[in-house]
Each structure stands twice: as C-alpha cells, then as structure tokens.
Design a protein around this nucleic acid. Structure first.
Length: 859
DNA sequence: GTCTATTTTTGCCTC
DNA sequence: AAAAATAGAC
C-alpha cells in the first residue's frame, strides 16, 4: 500500500537506481529507490515531501537521523540538487559526523561533496571568513572561547574603572552572550536591559567589546552567526547569492535553535527573488525595572517574541525548501538561549508548512516508554505526541533510594558488575547525571573497582590549560595582533615577565595603538625595563620572529613541535612532578598529532575551537559517564539515572531563574534521560548528598511522584559490602529502605521522609559528616564531624556501623615510615605516619593527607 | 618586581 | 572543593 503524498510525483522512477538483483515481489513492495524501503509511512512522507517548508516532529527514538540522511540521499538521487547546494545544519560536531557517516554508507561513496553539512557555528564561521572584511575582520580571525572572552571583558572593566567585584566580567559575558543569542547588536539592545549592568554602562561596554574584537582580529561564538546576519541584511546581493546556492535546507534539533539561529535560517530560506530584506527594528516598551533578578526572571522569551513578530509581520517572500526536524519534548537548552517557541510556532513562521509526526518508537520497551511519556505529560507547553512501541513491556523502571551519595555510587557499581556477569557489554551501560560534579563519586568508585569507564563531554580537550597554552603560541605566530594569546604565554614558562611588565606593555600599546607584540618589540629597544626583563622579552620577540620565518619552510606539525621545545614549554611540564604532568605531555603530543589532519597552521587554528572533540577510545568496552545534556541523541541498553532529588534535579538554579518554564525544561531533561534506555532504566535518589564539600539532607525529586506506578518498581539499595565485607553492615540500612518502599506511593511521603531527620531542610552535615569520616577516609583529611548531633538524630545501629566500617579495614600496612609513594590524584609523597592501613602522607604538591594504603603504590 | 603561600570567593548544563 | 585574589618572602 503506497500512500502517495501530493508532491511525490517522483516515486515512480525506479529505474533511476536499478534495484540490483531484487526479487520481483520485493521490488513491488518498495516502489521507488531501495533506500526508501524499510521506512514507515510517516518517515517516508518526511523524506519525500521535498517542496515547501516541512516540520518533522520526531519523538525520541523514532528514526530522526535516518529521516534526515535519507532525505538528503533522496534529493541527490532525484537530481533535485547537487551536494554543494544542500545546507544541512546540526548543533554538535558529533551529530554532523554521524550524518556524514551514515550518508556515506547510504550513497556508497565519500561525502566530501557535502561542503555545507556542519554545525551552525562552523558554517556560520565559514561564511564569515569569506566576507570577513565586511565585518572589519581579516579572514584569519581567531575564534575566542568563553575564557578569552571573560579575560577581555575584565580588561575593559578595568579600563572603565568599574569594580569587578560588584560587576563581575563573567556576568557581563553572560549578558552579551544572551543578547547575541537573541540576535541583538549593541545598538539594538533595549536600553532598559543595557542599563542593568554597572549602572547603565552595559550597552556601552557591549559596544566597546565589539570594537576591541575587531582590533584583535577576533570573533566570539555569537559573532559567527550575528555578523552573518548583519552582512546579509546590509548586503542583499551577498544574501541573494547564498539563497540561490542553497536549494534545500535541513535543520537538525530545531527545538534548540535560538533567535539568532532562527533569523539566520529565515534569511537564507527565503526565495532569492526578493531583492531586499526588511531590517528588523525591535520595538520595545521599557519596563523600568532596576531589579536585575526580577528582570531576568520576567523577560524570558518576551523580547524574542517581538523580534519574531516584527519579522513575521514583514511581507515574507515565498519560503524555500526548508525541512526542520525536532522534538519539543527534548528542548533542554533554554538556559543558553534556545527558544522552544521556534518549533511551537513553525507553521506560523513558515506559512504553508507541512507538519509530520513520527510517533513510532523503535528503541525502548513498553514500560520505559510509558514511564517517560507519563512524566512528560505533566508539561503544559507542548505540541503533544504519543509515542508508541511494538516492543514487549520488558523490565519495569526501577527507583532506588539510598542513605547517601556514596552508597548510591556503591550500589550502582555493584549492579553494573552484576550486569557484566550476566554478559552485558559495558559499552551498553551509561550513567547519566544532572550536574558534572556528580561524576567524581562514580569515578572514584570505578577506580577502586577496576571497572573501565569513560567520561563523555567532560572538560573539552582544547579547554585544558596545556592545550590552550600551546594554541596561544601558535596563535601569536599566526596572528601577531592576538593580544590575548600573547598575554597568556608571555610568562609561561616563567621568564621573569610579571604583571608589572605586562602592564607596561599595555600602556605602551594603547598609547601607540599597536598590538602588544609590536609594543614589546619597541620596548626592548628602550631602557624602560630592567636589564633582566628586557633581555628575556627581547628573546621572546626574537623567538617568535624566527618561528614565523620558519613557518614558510617547515611543515606545521614540525613547527609546533619546535615551538613547544624551544619555548621551554615541554621542559616545564617534564620538570613538574605533579601527578597529571605526564598526562599533559601526552595531551601535547596528541595535539601535534591531530594537526596532521589539517593542511596548514591557518586551517588548523580555524577549526580547532569549533571542531576539536576529545576522542575517547570508543572501541574499548567501558561504562559511559556523562551529563543528561550530553546524552541527547545517544542510546544504551542499560541507563542509570542517579541523583533524582529536589534542588539537584530539578535543579534549584533553573527553578530560581526560570520558574515554571525552568521546571518544564528539567522535566524534559528527565524525559530525555529515560528515553535513552533500550531495555533497562534505573533511577536513584539519596537522602544525603555532599555539595561543595558539605553534606546536606535532600528530598526526593517531585518527578518520582510523576512516574506511573504501573510501570515502576521500588527496590532496595544494594550498596554496602564494599568496605565492611559481609559483617553486620546492611541490616540497619534495609530497615530504612523498607520504610522508603512502603511509604513511597502515599501522598506527602516526602514530608514524612524529611521529618525523619528533624526539620529536614539544610540543617547541616552532622550525620553525613560522620558517614563521610567512616567510609571515605581516603579523601578527607580534616576531621571534625559533629558526633553529638549524630547520635541525637540517628538510631543506635548506625553508630555501630560507623565503627565497624572503620575497624573492619584495620589490617597492618605493607608500607613503612618514610616510604616514597605515588597516589593517582595527589602525586608523589612520603609516608609520615601509619595507623593500621591508614597512612598519613606528605605529598610534594598536595600537602599532607590521610589516605588508605590501597590507594597508593610504592614510587 | 617576581614568585609562592595563604586568604577570600564562587560555583551546575554549552557551541 | 577549586579558582582567584591577596599578602608576604626573596
């Protein structure tokens, strides 16, 4: 049965791609090219509706990427466009790579011919480089990351004599980022909003920040799109050029687009016939609100709406063939400017749009899908989809409570080991946390268990200090005007060029309006500096001159190696005795290696900040550990979801800042988490959690109450045996757990739980402190838990538990006084005291710590 | 003036 | 708990 949708006159051209050796019946069933076979009717419609705007609402696990890639294949094989005429944007490099990969498989050849498949930022950056002079930049401009951005703003604040205690540079960076996300240039920022920073100087600072960027020949992430938009508006001929080039536009994760991305897409998607594009002037009625908090809380999406209204009101030309794929239930980036409204109002923004829903889930079992659907049904602002599966019910989603976050980690560690014994691949196990600080406890646990794991997302490779330093050297070579890079490395390694010297260079540079590097060149010819500083500065300038000359004749990878060696940077880390020095040297090698993939230094630096991912050895069988945010788009057989507690998840900060909308976003995050699972989803909460070093009592997440009882099973924590062997450890705990279990479903059970601990709130870490002392002796050196409050709060058996745990490990140590030892985290040190199996060690770098002997080895 | 050791703040999620 | 700002030693 073929449902012919109206524009698909093309389906009956099977000879275009001869079905190689196909059985007649099979060829009949899948009329059309063979890549269409195996798609369900909705997917097929999404692939074949080529003309006009299309919105594909694709729930979790409904074959979204498949639709996108098949659509591209379809466009190409139908001869509707050449590869270079398709604009296809994603948010992450990972998604872009995945699409290229799958496309390559489908088309059977390399996809080099898809030059416009990439992230918003990389494509935006590419367009900006082509027209850099229209943004007062050179085409080799540097892309600044958040860190550079903040340092630059700090300098501006200083120049303006603004107290950066009261008005932190970070906050201004956030504001500017927000404005850029909403597509606002300095002159377009509503004056009321610009005034909230530093008593009205906010707008002016934004303007001078932009000026400064031009001088430094640099752009930040926001500029990559915002400057494009400005160029498109000011130069209709250039815009028309792109409009003509892109016959088809495809957008992945449309629910995550912000206003700037929306405007960018909107400009490009209009038919080229319209000669001019009306400029958008946002009309805003000022709310004279001086209260920052209030203002932020209120503003939400409102200004964005007026932007959109202005644009939508303008006589829009006929829109081209734009296809956006997304899921409003997976919109989780509101905090960085994403506008759910973009997807909610798609058919309004693109008149005549066809909306196609993909609701058939091919990933999860019945119970998992039901739990996720039931949870997300509590949200109000959604388009509404009903996911269905033909899979069997499978195992119920489990909810497990534990006493504290360490027990949670222990329990999960054991369950994973059990899964492993059952023959599950560790690659099919993932732990998804709300906040990255939750990862530590799991890492600690896995290190002791010897369970292989990998952290996904984590601190980005190029954000590591050693990588940024190395890049700074290369940036100064490539772009002598890059003051930020120069300042970063002028005294790294130490050359005796401290704050005073740098300050002097700044004065000189500002007076003569030249870059810092040129100022340095000039200053060494004067006698303004002391001989020592003057000498080493002269040496630095000479070195860079030499490297720049060498650049012409040396391969860029060799040059990088030479720079790192001659500058003394490699040597600096070789001399460093701290634990992670070796890793840093390894990272530097990796950096040089990765440069081989690029043609030259210029090309490398252009892409480094946009494309570089940390490559985690994916072939090795290991548990994946990541945040819920970075889990989007992935799937695993077994998913562990720890930390479902009020304040952590839903996050208190999101609630404070975004109120109801924030709660809904958190709920979507929960939905994303559960729907990552194919066969098992396991949720956890702890009663006590350590946040920033201090323990506090927590309340189970409200989301737990929103899960459907029929699909959820309450289980007991299995944590425990790790430290104390089998002896007397678990019993008291299980008492607690039974209480959890039996009262779970009754209303107000959280309150009961809270009362158990008297007052429940943030009454401090008395009991938890003891628990920490007992079980994580390894990491805590300072003592001082409040034993008094401990006993008044908890019943008897647990006191015993504490002793048992502490004593059960009391074997004699194999170490002797003044032994030289090495610790994974603290590096090298010397044993100063022995107490059973507990050692006191004076570390070379980390100071004196108490550590259990199994954590160290002989050096 | 520069480097190191103590003290203060401030933090979650990202291209 | 880590980073930044700050105070003292060379």
């Amino acid at each position: 049965m073929i449902r012919m949708t109206e524009p698909s006159k093309i389906t009956d051209v099977p000879d275009h791609q001869p079905a190689a050796g196909g059985i007649a019946a099979r060829a009949r069933a899948s009329v059309g090219p063979k890549y269409l076979s195996g798609l369900n009717p909705e997917q097929r419609e999404a692939v074949e509706t080529l003309d006009g705007p299309v919105l594909v609402l694709a729930g979790a696990g409904t074959g979204k990427t498949r639709v996108l890639t098949t659509r591209i294949a379809h466009i190409l094989s139908q001869g509707r466009a050449r590869p270079a005429e398709i604009l296809s944007v994603t948010f992450t490099n990972k998604a872009a790579r995945e699409m290229k990969h799958r496309l390559g498989q489908m088309l059977g050849h390399a996809v080099e011919g898809m030059p416009w498949l990439g992230t918003f930022h990389s494509i935006g950056g590419r367009i900006l480089r082509t027209h850099a002079e229209l943004a007062q930049l050179k085409s080799n401009f540097t892309v600044l990351d958040t860190d550079d951005q903040v340092r630059l703003l700090k300098q501006l604040l200083q120049a303006d004599n603004i107290d950066d205690k009261r008005w932190p540079a970070r906050m201004l960076a956030g504001l500017i980022d927000g404005w850029k996300n909403r597509g606002l240039t300095p002159s377009q920022v509503p004056s009321g909003e610009a005034a909230v920073f530093a008593n009205g100087k906010g707008g002016k600072l934004y303007a001078s920040y932009q000026e400064r960027l031009k001088i430094l020949n640099a752009a930040d992430f926001g500029d990559l799109l915002l400057e494009d938009i400005r160029i498109f508006r000011e130069h209709p001929d250039i815009l028309r050029q792109y409009q003509q080039r892109f016959k088809f536009i495809l957008v992945d994760e449309y629910q995550d687009t912000n206003v700037a991305q929306y405007l960018w897409l909107r400009l490009l998607s209009q038919a080229p016939s319209k000669p001019t594009v009306p400029a958008v002037i946002p009309e805003r009625i000022e709310e004279a609100s001086s209260d920052v908090q209030l203002h932020v809380a209120e503003s939400g999406s409102e200004p964005a709406m007026s932007e959109r209204a202005a644009l939508a009101a303008a006589p829009a030309g006929p829109t081209k063939n734009i296809c956006c794929v997304g899921d409003d239930d997976q919109s989780i980036y509101g905090w960085r400017g994403a506008e759910v409204d973009n997807i909610l109002r798609f058919d309004h923004d693109f008149p005549g749009a066809k909306v196609i829903r993909l609701e058939r889930n091919y990933r999860s079992t019945g119970h998992i899908l039901a739990a996720a659907s039931h949870l997300i049904a509590h949200n109000e602002g959604r388009l509404g989809k009903t996911l269905r599966t033909e899979d069997h019910d499978g195992e119920k989603v489990t909810v497990t409570g534990s006493w504290d976050s360490e027990e949670e980690a222990r329990g999960i560690g054991e369950e994973i080991e059990q899964l492993q014994r059952q023959g599950e691949k560790l690659n099919e196990v993932a732990i998804l946390v709300r906040a990255s600080y939750q990862m530590r406890e799991f890492e600690d646990r896995f290190v002791t268990l010897g369970l292989p794991y990998r952290v996904i997302g984590g601190p980005r490779f190029y954000e590591r200090a050693e990588i940024r330093d190395a890049l700074a050297y290369l940036r100064v070579i490539n772009s002598p005007a890059d003051d930020l890079a120069f300042e970063r490395i002028v005294n790294v390694p130490k050359r005796g060029l401290g704050d005073a010297t740098v300050q002097m260079l700044h004065d000189h540079a500002r007076k003569r309006r030249i870059p810092l590097f040129e100022a340095a060149r000039a200053v060494v010819e004067t006698d303004e500096l002391k001989p020592k500083a003057r000498g080493s500065l002269r040496e630095v300038v000479a070195q860079f001159d030499r490297w720049r000359a060498q650049r012409e004749v040396t391969a860029h990878t060799d040059l990088a190696q030479i720079v790192l060696d001659e500058s003394g940077y490699t040597e600096m880390w070789q001399k460093d005795r701290s634990a992670d020095a070796a890793g840093r040297l390894e990272n530097l090698k990796e950096l040089v290696r990765s440069m081989e993939e690029f043609e030259n230094l210029q090309g490398f630096l252009e892409h480094i900040s946009l494309v570089m991912d940390r490559d985690s050895g994916a072939d090795e069988d290991a548990v994946s550990l990541m945040t819920l945010h970075s889990a989007k788009g992935l799937e695993f057989d077994n998913v562990f979801l720890p930390g479902w507690e009020e304040g952590l998840f839903p996050s208190q900060r999101t609630l404070d800042e975004q109120g109801r909308a924030g709660l809904e976003e958190e709920r979507r995050l929960g939905h994303v988490g559960i729907t990552r699972a194919r066969r098992r989803a396991k949720i956890y909460f702890a009663t006590n959690r350590r946040i920033h070093g201090t323990w506090s009592t927590t309340i189970p997440s409200r989301f737990l109450d929103e899960l459907p009882a029929a699909n959820v099973e309450i289980t007991e924590s299995k944590g425990g045996s790790a430290w104390g062997g089998t002896g007397g450890y678990g019993a008291s705990r299980f008492d607690d757990m039974e209480a959890f279990g039996s009262t779970y479903s009754t209303p107000g059970w959280q309150r009961a739980q809270a009362n158990r601990n008297r007052g429940g709130g943030r009454t401090g870490g008395g009991s938890g402190g003891f628990e920490e002392q007992a079980s994580t002796f390894s990491s805590s050196a300072s003592s001082g838990p409040d034993f008094g409050s401990f006993s008044s709060r908890r019943r008897g058996p647990l006191t015993i538990e504490g002793e048992l745990v502490a004593k059960s490990t009391g074997t004699t140590s194999e170490f002797a006084l003044s032994d030289r030892v090495f610790h994974q985290k603290f590096g090298y040190g010397r044993v100063t005291r022995i107490d059973g199996n507990k050692l006191t060690i004076a570390f070379d770098k980390a100071g004196e710590k108490k550590v259990v002997d199994s954590f160290v080895q002989r050096a």
